[in-house]
């Protein structure tokens, strides 16, 4: 630190000078600007979603009239889900960029079928294995009740990450030899946005990615993501 041998000055002024000498480097500034630019691109769909909500009543009326008109002229029009052109994600409703990113990430992991860190049919043993997580993986009653994923189908688990956060990946094999992957991660509303809680009577978010079904819900403070054929 430089020693300034000039005379005394008011403390306030000296503090201002002390603080003001620190500046971001050009590279640091560029990194922060890039961070903001990337986020702005990701936020754009959300803003569009909010805008859509404002015009929803009008659109709903117009849609009803349109459907009534179509129904009278084309009796068997095929139903279609909305499609996201970039990631080939289809869904029954619009979703935020982060949900789409999570879905693409878990499906990619599911398809890779990396070796399991632990092979066990016991969820309790799997829970003991995941000691480096900031949460304890749970036996999902919702997965069992709603998606017929019995505890007895468990093959094992491995560590993975969802959007940079360490998560547990549990692999199941149903009697008809279908592989299902259940991801469990600590739920952070700020990071993931609102995720439905099935216990409260809400429906899971459902998307179709690369021919696989992705369901997201919240359970006992965790976000659960199930990938199944």
């Amino acid at each position: 630190m430089n020693i300034n041998l000039q005379g005394s000055a008011p403390l306030k002024q000296q503090i201002q000078q002390e603080i003001d000498q620190h500046r971001l480097s050009g590279k640091q500034f560029e990194q922060l600007m890039e961070l903001q630019t990337r986020s702005a691109s990701a936020q754009a769909p959300k803003l569009l979603e909010a805008k859509e909500k404002l015009t929803k009543p009008l659109i709903a009326i117009a849609a009803c009239l349109f459907i009534a008109l179509i129904a009278t002229t084309i009796p068997f029009a095929p139903s279609r889900l909305s499609t996201d052109g970039e990631t080939e994600i289809t869904s029954n409703r619009p979703h935020s960029a982060v949900i789409k990113a999570i879905s693409a990430e878990v499906v990619k992991n599911h398809l890779k079928l990396k070796p399991l860190d632990i092979k066990t049919q016991s969820i309790d043993e799997a829970r003991r294995f995941f000691e480096h997580l900031e949460f304890s993986p749970i036996y999902s009653t919702q997965a069992r009740q709603r998606f017929s994923l019995s505890d007895g189908f468990l093959l094992g688990g491995r560590y993975c990450s969802i959007q940079g956060t360490t998560a547990a990946q549990l692999r199941f094999e149903t009697p008809d030899k279908q592989l299902n992957t259940l991801y469990e991660v600590s739920y952070d509303e700020l990071k993931y946005g609102p995720i439905p809680s099935l216990k409260d009577g809400e429906s899971a978010i459902e998307l179709q990615v690369k021919g696989l079904s992705v369901r997201l819900w919240r359970e006992r403070g965790l976000m659960m993501v199930l990938v199944s054929p």
């Binding site: 041998l5 005394s8 000055a9 002390e18």
Partner: peptide
């Protein structure tokens, strides 16, 4: 507000 200090003293 009333204090006067030298720069090196502050540092």
């Amino acid at each position: 507000e009333e204090l006067q200090v030298q720069r090196d003293q502050l540092e």
